[in-house]
Design a protein around this nucleic acid. Structure first.
Ligand code: MN
Ligand code: MN
Ligand code: ZN
Ligand code: ZN
Lengths: 137, 137
DNA sequence: AGCCATAGTGAGAATGATTATCAAAGTCAT
DNA sequence: ATGACTTTGATAATCATTCTCACTATGGCT
């Protein structure tokens, strides 16, 4: 299901590596600044291009922040959902057999085909709950 | 859970009525043009303001299109999810006891508090599947 | 009716993420 | 090295959303 691995440019590989080191979702702008902070300057266009390529193959997951900005994360190969801390952004990959069944059952009941679904959980992680200050954004 | 009904301006009521007549999600821009087509001109600022108020009370649901644009819909009072046709936009409100349980279980297992969740299903409705041409966008 | 305080409106400017341009720089087989 | 092709990135263009702020509508009061 993880689309045929696509060719990746030199920059694309760097950007994928950068995402690999992050545990949380990051926006294109954050990636841009994060790489720059490491001394490696890429153009924004290059970053957006790489991100487009990476998401099209499923190598990178994307979701939308409440303000509409797109967030990217390098994830596991297989289908999964996310548990995300609203405080620090910590992200845990989760499975959801019951969700898969639910989506399938509902869709079938209404005669829908070519089904997709989204399901994410947001909350405050234990660290952020005890600490006054969340670690990061 | 449906927040204390908030005061609504005259324009806000009109905009809520407009959404009431629609079965699908609509963007702010579509609402703007739709109202204009009915001869009633509202400023975009007014529409965005009303939408903000309506979503804050939970009277109107909001979700993000894949391109990031926000979509709004007048929905039922109680908590629910959506089954949305990718062809015509037809939207069906669905319940998901199993999803509620899943979210709760996962969150508890990882010690997360203040839980929220999102879960939507997308597909092609029977009408759009048989017809060559989807009705609307 | 006339006056005044306050809330609501909307044209237009500002913001900010994303995309489009396109010329310059890199790659690579011959 | 030459030429064909790909990649890059500074910059401009888009476009949804928010911000400004002068103007209008409303409602209480005399
Ligand atoms: Mn799933
Ligand atoms: Mn639910
Ligand atoms: Zn946290
Ligand atoms: Zn349909």
């Amino acid at each position: 299901m993880a689309g045929g691995r696509k060719f990746m440019t030199k920059s694309g590989i760097e950007i994928a590596k950068f995402l690999d080191k992050r545990e949380s979702f990051a926006s294109a702008q954050e990636i841009f600044l994060g790489l720059r902070a490491e001394g490696r300057n890429f153009g924004l266009a290059t970053i957006y291009r790489a991100l487009q390529s990476l998401t099209s193959t499923g190598e990178v997951d994307v979701l939308r922040r409440s303000d509409g900005e797109a967030l990217y994360r390098k994830c596991g190969e297989d289908h999964h959902h996310h548990l995300i801390c609203k405080g620090c952004g910590k992200t845990i990959e989760i499975e959801g057999v019951s969700v898969e069944e639910w989506a399938h059952t509902i869709a079938e009941r209404h005669g829908f085909r070519e089904i997709q679904h989204s399901a994410e959980i947001f909350g405050i992680c234990p660290d952020c709950f005890t600490q006054a200050e969340p670690k990061r954004r």
